[in-house]
């Protein structure tokens, strides 16, 4: 066996070991590295009321209601499997709207409502000029 082949074998074995361990680490991280919980995850994960979490999903159509104080909104977030009620006091990003993705930072209250301290809009992977909207763009599920 030439030393060149020995080195090649060593490099390939090392590469496989590295990629393998990387993949193992990433699958183990799967839940911890998630940026947010989807409404269905909230049911299975044991999230205590008051614990700081992020919730992400699609804003349900016609669900945004404004409280009389003018700055508090209530809406529902869905991932197609489950729905969570959300309450938020403050200013939302321009791209926050019904049938669009959102991520909220906050915690669950004792009655199961998610109280958000901050809201981010999640943009999906679709890009198009305005006149095509409606023709192509029908967001029904979370773009994942």
């Amino acid at each position: 066996m030439k030393p060149k082949h020995q080195r090649l074998g060593l490099a390939v074995a090392g590469l496989f070991a590295m990629v393998g361990s990387g993949l193992l680490a990433m699958t183990a991280l799967k839940d911890q590295a998630a940026y947010f919980y989807a409404p269905a995850d909230l049911k299975t994960a044991s999230v205590k009321p008051g614990e700081a979490i992020r919730l992400g999903g699609m804003v349900v159509a016609n669900s945004i209601k404004r409280d009389p104080d003018g700055v508090t909104i209530r809406f529902q977030v869905s991932d197609g499997k489950a729905t969570t009620n959300v309450r938020f006091t403050g200013i939302v990003p321009d791209l926050f709207k019904e049938n669009s993705g959102m991520v909220g930072e906050g915690s669950l209250s004792s009655d199961g409502t998610f109280v958000a301290d901050n809201i981010l809009a999640k943009h999906d992977e679709r890009y198009m000029p305005p006149q095509l909207e409606g023709k192509m763009h029908k967001t029904e599920t979370m773009a994942q």
Partner: peptide, 16 residues
């Protein structure tokens, strides 16, 4: 590959 797959493996703010 982690960068490439990050938006598929995990819930992320960045779009797919």
């Amino acid at each position: 590959p982690i960068i490439n797959r990050s938006v598929v493996w995990w819930n992320s703010l960045h779009q797919g």
